[in-house]
Nucleic acid binder design. Sequence first.
DNA 1: GTGCTTGTTGGCCA
DNA 2: GTGGCCAACAAGCA
Length: 277
Amino acid sequence: MPELAEVEFFRRRWHEAAVGERALKVLTHDKKRLLRELNLQAFRRALTGATLQSSEAAAKQMLFRFSGNAWLGIHLGMSGELSVTPPDHTAGKHDHLVLVTKRHALVFTDPRMFGRVEFHLGTEAPRWWTKIAPSILSEAFTVGAVAAFLQRRARAPIKAVLLMQERFPGIGNWMADEILWRASLHPARRAGSLTAAETRTLWRECRHVCQLALGTIAGRGQRLPPNLNAFIPKTWLFWHRWEDGGRCPRTKTPLARAAIGGRTTCWSPARQKLQPR
DNA sequence: GTGCTTGTTGGCCA
DNA sequence: GTGGCCAACAAGCA
């Protein structure tokens, strides 16, 4: 699930429930995987009694800042979710981290355990946070930077290149497919084969899809929608990509599906041609 | 049982 | 050293 906008959705859930509140209890499970980076004793000691001061999301990660210079980082992996429940929450099988405040329990659940919890003590944000590539919606994400990156990865399929976090932070499988579909680019095209005009279109649609995806969960006033996809329009590829016999919402022709760049990819053959026209 | 799955990493090879 | 590919990680679902 978690790509750029979903990560922001989950961050806001915890933030809205607990900003300004103290973590009275810190419960952890599964030391081997999700919590593998942690010194558990130091982690619990630092967070217990600490107040959540602020939070931010970048790429597919979140950073929660607590009093006492304590920073909690979360990567949701493939199946992670953050939820807010009553403070007497009983931890389920896949609840790996629970922060209990006076009014809530903040729960990090991840059945497939590809997620990660990180922790840092210090006055500055940790290196694993600051080294995340600049947002696609920032000034630093220029057409020139995209063009240079495509040249460096010239022989790789464009689909695989869009998944590279070092240049396209926060893009995951469904967003990559959405971007290529809107840009009318076949996912198997070699990155180096794009014309200047195609590169510009790709750049524009990267920003567009990020803006729209974030807008569906954060752009309609301050309240979170009931669920994460509540406002994604039916005109997006998103709703059709996993349907059997799914059709392109623009051309109404059948969609194609295949593994490209090692990931299941969906595209509209009527719009996205392998040979440049 | 089989074959998938919205992510990332490390090892292998050209 | 660089770039590209792929298996592995783990659990659940159809």
